[in-house]
Design a protein around this nucleic acid. Structure first.
Lengths: 213, 213
DNA sequence: GACAATCAGATTTTCGAAAAATTTATATTC
DNA sequence: GAATATAAATTTTTCGAAAATCTGATTGTC
């Protein structure tokens, strides 16, 4: 399915299998993903609007750059949007929303509790479950564009989260504890605490990323 | 060129040539725009990420809905982002930026000074020049994502601007004067006044749109 | 040697035909 | 007559060949 190809491409860009500014040639990609040129082109042009890929007319597709400046800006936008989305979700969330959060957190904690080496092996899964956990927190957000914009920024941060993975080694346990506390604050419907913790959580990761860039 | 097709499609959606929720069939579109299916698909999938079109797997493309709720939400996001972008642009803009604003305003005023009937005839051009004027105001904005997000919301508002066109009949002169005053405030580097005026300018149009929806 | 023109190879872009899927219409059964 | 199954028609989706474009090397000229 098409949407799945977009996700696979994005995942490969996020995990730096395709390095920033690398050329994305159709000849290579059709082999790697076993799809036709047209299908690929459609997926890539979607990633252009998402900001992961750039397209220069006649010169083809390239992986978008990463930079300190962008990381800082994206972090600021994400923190701002995420706080609002969390508040919105806490205001509107029901029992179903709560139980989905608990479930997503459990799935994430299974990987986060693994020994370091194993956790690294399953980094792709971690990214996925981490995304799902954070998304579950704001799933009850009523503002559709608020949700959309914050998800866009979250996806962008995923690229930098991978970079910070290296300088993050010792911090695994700390991040894990933060996830639990954020969940608790959200379930307690404590907007002030939840937003404050989220901000600290995100900015901490960004700090680590800035060290590598 | 591909990008141009995206613009033409967007313009036709904005101007309600394709009504909200209307099905976008390839058979029709290939004739209308005289391009192949693949090219069309690429353009449409870009409009999906922009939020103008929806895609249900296997069921094809449809024009995205419009609603009071969305208009209100998009307005709020746009006002917020535009104010920040204007402040950013005023902080960084140079002489070149200023002169582009004056030029864009002049081009817009040529159409806005036309008698009502003629102005309506050239509504497509007005939309384009109106976009260019507003974009020129924030062109010096350094935050690339701030610029991007605000442009996204501006494009969304274009859909509703068309709706408000009808209930706007008497207000043409007022809007024209507002554009001049906003330009003046920006050129004076008066952030407080510029942001205040922009907000009033936008919310006024949204009010008109809400009457129709 | 510096610069422009030319050409071959590689890459992107476009297109429409074939395959897959969905919807609509028709027939069959209870 | 309603419900289900079958067939036809419509529409979407995929794919790769052909056209257009770009890149880089080679040749020729000043």
């Amino acid at each position: 399915m098409g949407q799945d190809l977009v996700s696979r491409l994005r995942a490969d860009i996020v995990s730096h299998i395709f390095m920033p500014e690398a050329k994305l040639k159709f000849a290579d990609l059709t082999k790697r993903y076993d799809v036709g040129i047209g299908t690929l082109r459609e997926a890539l042009s979607q990633l252009v609007s998402e900001g992961f890929v750039t397209l220069e007319a006649g010169k083809g597709f390239k992986v978008a750059q990463v930079s300190r400046e962008e990381l800082i800006e994206v972090t600021d936008h994400f923190v701002d949007l995420e706080k609002r989305a969390i508040a919105d979700a806490i205001a509107h969330g029901d029992d179903d929303w709560e139980s989905h959060i608990v479930a997503a957190h459990h799935r994430l904690s299974i990987i986060e509790n693994l020994p370091w080496a194993q956790r690294m092996e399953r980094h792709g899964e971690w990214v996925q479950r981490h995304r799902e956990f954070h998304e579950s927190l704001v799933a009850a957000c009523q503002g559709r564009w608020l949700f959309r914009l914050r998800s866009m920024m979250f996806d962008q941060l995923d690229r930098y989260r991978f970079l910070s993975k290296m300088s993050l080694d010792g911090q695994g346990k700390k991040k894990f504890e933060e996830h639990r506390l954020i969940m608790q604050a959200v379930l307690d419907r404590d907007v002030a605490k939840a937003t404050e913790m989220i901000e600290e959580h995100i900015r901490g990761t960004t700090e680590a990323g800035l060290k590598v860039l």
